[in-house]
Amino acid sequence: MNKKKILIVLSVIAVAVAAYLYVSLFASNTKFDKDEVYVFVPTGSKYEDVLKIIEPYVKDVDGFKVVAKIRSYDENVFPGRFLFKKGTGSLGLVSALRHNQPLDLAFNNQESLEKLVSRVSSQIEADSLSLMKAIKDPAFMKKNGFNEETVLGMFIPNTYQFKWNTSAEKFRDKMFAEFENFWTEERKAKAKALDMTPVEVITLAAVVHKETVKADERPRVAGVYLNRLKTEMPLQADPTIIFAMRRKANNLDLVIKRVKGREMLGVDSPYNTYVHTGLPPGPIAMPDISAIDAVLNPEKHDYIYFCASVERFGYHDFTASYAEHVENANKYAEWVNKLGIK
């Protein structure tokens, strides 16, 4: 074979190799219709596990394996949440599996630790049981000034950035760090001026949060409860009765539309603020920031009583007079009776 033919053959081979490499490295190797999908690789996964995980999204797994071998991914698997974009080649897919994508973990006003860990476990790898165990770890709670009744107060409703493969302990520790960041020197000073700890502020804020959905009314409601605490008057907060009844029934989803009657108002519970003076043992729910700041920045007034208004839906009527309060309460009772609410 002369030199010219050899060059032609070599050129053809080079083109074929180049074409093969291009297809292997850069040509689209995805088979999903969406613009992008997230692939989740659990902690402890092996390379063979990853191949099974990506199979529904990769058109040519053998081609992927060639590139994974070249890039040594088969020996360096990473857990996490990874973004695959439609039309990406094998080289891009292998590269994507090296970049753990953070996510925005959000939780709002969860009413219990059980509901909190259920919501969190639906967003990160850690399951409900491991989250609950980490949060209620006796050593952790004692070190940081919590107990089983108060530890819910550590969680400030918000959106936080996490890696999907975050462990239960790392989630807990970051939430405590966020709790400390939330309690700035200014907030601590305001709590101290009320002769309250941060956990006590949150405990009262949970009651305020449950009493009114109107954020602009919360400082006034907080002022009422602080006035009662100053005079050692029972808080007499209906939301604490509802909480106590739910705990007694072992059903935090129990629907209670009205608080009335001897059975409810006399329920045997440390959360019964009609019977016990002072704050309940811990927060009855997870208050949002507006409720916490309402306690720290209460409206100054002499109101002692308040009752749901029949004229301004969602708001309350306030008074310093017990006689006026009874009048307001009777008006409200008559209104809900007409509505057939029991």
Rank of each mutant, 00 (worst) to 15 (best):
M1T: 13
N2E: 15
N2Q: 13
N2V: 09
K3T: 14
K4R: 15
V15S: 12
A16L: 15
A18R: 04
F26K: 12
S28I: 02
D33N: 10
K34C: 02
K34I: 03
K34A: 14
E36M: 13
V37W: 11
P42T: 12
P42A: 14
T43E: 15
K46R: 12
Y47K: 05
L51F: 00
K52Q: 10
P56V: 00
Y57T: 00
V58M: 01
V61W: 01
V66A: 11
V67I: 15
D74L: 03
D74W: 01
V77W: 08
P79C: 12
R81A: 10
L83D: 10
K85E: 14
K86I: 03
K86F: 04
G92T: 02
V94W: 00
L105C: 02
L105D: 09
A106M: 09
N108Q: 10
E111K: 10
L113V: 09
K115E: 14
L116D: 06
E125V: 02
E125A: 06
L131C: 08
L131V: 04
M132T: 13
M141W: 09
F146A: 06
N147I: 04
F155A: 07
N158E: 15
Y160P: 08
Q161L: 11
E169G: 09
D173C: 08
D173E: 15
E178D: 13
F179A: 05
E180A: 06
E180S: 07
F182R: 02
W183C: 05
T184S: 14
T184I: 02
K188A: 11
K188Y: 06
K192C: 05
D195Y: 08
E200C: 03
A206G: 01
A206L: 00
A206T: 00
H209K: 05
H209C: 03
T212V: 04
R218L: 04
P219H: 07
V221L: 09
A222I: 02
V224I: 06
L226N: 06
K230H: 10
T231M: 11
M245H: 01
L252V: 01
I256T: 01
V259W: 05
V259E: 09
R262H: 13
E263C: 04
V267R: 11
D268T: 13
D268P: 04
S269F: 12
S269L: 12
S269N: 13
N272A: 09
N272L: 12
V275P: 10
L279C: 08
P281G: 05
D288F: 02
I289T: 08
I292T: 03
N297I: 03
E299A: 08
I304H: 04
I304G: 02
S309E: 07
V310R: 02
V310F: 00
F313I: 09
F313G: 02
F318G: 04
A320R: 10
S321D: 12
A323V: 05
E324S: 07
E324N: 12
E327Y: 03
N328G: 03
E334Y: 10
E334C: 01
W335A: 13
L339M: 12
G340D: 11
G340V: 06
I341W: 14
I341K: 06
I341C: 06
